[in-house]
Amino acid sequence: MNDVSLSPQDFQQLSAFRYQLRCFLRHSEDICREHGLTPLQYQLLLHLLAGKGRQWATVGELAERLQAKHHGTVMLVDRCEQSGLVRRARGREDRRRSEVHLLPRGAELARTIAAQHQPELRRFRDTFCLTDPPGEA
């Protein structure tokens, strides 16, 4: 058991944070559904769009970013591939691995949905006095 003693204010701050986080997530879920995507499909596209200088990732990298099991991520990639959002290709460096590549339709959806998140994201940042990520202001 943890010996940390929490004050009523600690609980209030945590409650407020969780509430605002849930409001953001609910708003995000609504936006995704308006565009015919599940929230997980959008997150997968977002992670591909935000890639490390590339618009592809391995299934393992996506599973980590989604905090999901490998087999669940494979099924999610399958659904996105069937919808024309991504395509799977053999790894360039390791042919045993699959690379998941973002297709133009997937990139466009991710950009559109991300833009619609910005007002709520700014409100979330302002509420918790969070700093903007580097390159934003």
Rank of each mutant, 00 (worst) to 15 (best):
42 Y>P: 02
4 V>Q: 06
29 E>I: 10
1 M>T: 12
78 D>C: 08
13 Q>P: 02
116 Q>T: 02
128 F>I: 00
8 P>G: 04
49 L>Q: 13
38 T>E: 15
63 A>Y: 04
15 S>G: 10
137 A>M: 12
101 H>E: 08
14 L>H: 08
122 R>K: 05
25 L>Y: 02
9 Q>G: 04
28 S>L: 11
44 L>S: 09
116 Q>H: 07
135 G>Q: 13
131 T>W: 07
3 D>V: 11
107 A>G: 14
65 R>D: 07
18 R>E: 06
110 A>P: 02
29 E>V: 07
115 A>T: 08
23 C>D: 03
119 P>Q: 07
91 G>I: 05
56 W>R: 03
130 L>W: 01
29 E>Y: 09
75 M>T: 09
61 E>P: 05
90 R>T: 13
68 A>D: 10
49 L>Y: 07
87 R>N: 12
82 Q>R: 15
52 K>P: 07
49 L>I: 07
11 F>S: 09
1 M>F: 11
97 R>S: 12
50 A>Y: 02
114 A>R: 10
42 Y>E: 09
94 D>E: 12
63 A>P: 02
129 C>N: 12
76 L>F: 01
60 G>P: 01
20 Q>Y: 04
61 E>Q: 12
68 A>C: 11
90 R>E: 14
131 T>F: 05
86 V>H: 03
109 L>I: 05
35 H>I: 04
65 R>N: 04
33 R>T: 13
38 T>H: 14
32 C>H: 01
10 D>A: 12
69 K>Q: 15
110 A>M: 01
21 L>Q: 10
82 Q>K: 15
10 D>F: 06
59 V>P: 03
57 A>R: 00
15 S>K: 07
10 D>C: 08
124 F>D: 06
46 L>T: 06
55 Q>Y: 02
123 R>P: 00
105 R>T: 14
16 A>P: 00
41 Q>S: 09
113 I>H: 00
110 A>S: 11
33 R>M: 12
67 Q>P: 05
79 R>W: 13
115 A>Y: 02
115 A>E: 07
50 A>S: 12
112 T>S: 01
87 R>G: 06
112 T>I: 04
82 Q>P: 05
3 D>E: 14
20 Q>H: 03
60 G>E: 12
54 R>C: 04
124 F>Q: 01
37 L>I: 08
137 A>N: 14
18 R>F: 07
85 L>H: 08
103 L>D: 02
74 V>S: 10
2 N>W: 06
126 D>I: 00
104 P>W: 12
14 L>Y: 01
8 P>S: 07
60 G>M: 09
123 R>H: 01
109 L>W: 04
95 R>A: 15
77 V>R: 08
6 L>T: 11
45 L>P: 09
95 R>P: 13
100 V>P: 05
104 P>G: 11
77 V>A: 11
26 R>M: 01
44 L>P: 09
24 F>E: 00
85 L>Q: 03
76 L>A: 04
71 H>L: 15
57 A>K: 00
81 E>R: 15
21 L>E: 09
40 L>T: 13
137 A>R: 15
81 E>M: 10
92 R>Y: 10
79 R>Y: 10
123 R>A: 05
43 Q>S: 13
23 C>T: 00
135 G>N: 11
104 P>N: 11
32 C>I: 03
49 L>F: 03
